[in-house]
Amino acid sequence: MPNVITANRLEDGIVVYLGQSGNWTSDLTAARVANSGHDLEALEKIAGTAVAASHVVAVYAMDVDLSGGKPAPKSVREKIRAAHRQTFKDLTEIEIR
């Protein structure tokens, strides 16, 4: 199952994803995808370095859907995180389901 690495940026808590060049991006579609356990281990190693360097916090791997050609969130929780949505002003941004 394809995975990407996600975290919160330490200084502001914003949701980020490990990008193609080892950078951290707030855009899930620009995240680097691990298609195997071996790939995922490599990404986790990079993420571990970023945690040790105090760039990010709360790192974990998440499943993504690649059917649209780019990584997309699967769970409601990850859809909400990826949208960086605020409830008060973007009331209709995400439908109930």
């Binding site: 919160n8 330490l10 808590g13 949701v15 360097a53 105090s54 916090v57 929780r77 909400i80 995180r81």
Partner: peptide, 28 residues
């Protein structure tokens, strides 16, 4: 000290919680 990497998240978490600061889905 946390931002400078002198405190790990495990060390910092109880300190921030004592000051009402949580890490949630999107932000603190």
């Amino acid at each position: 000290r946390r931002l400078a990497g002198e405190l790990t998240e495990d060390e910092f978490k109880p300190l921030r919680l004592m000051n009402g600061l949580y890490l949630q889905l999107h932000a603190y």
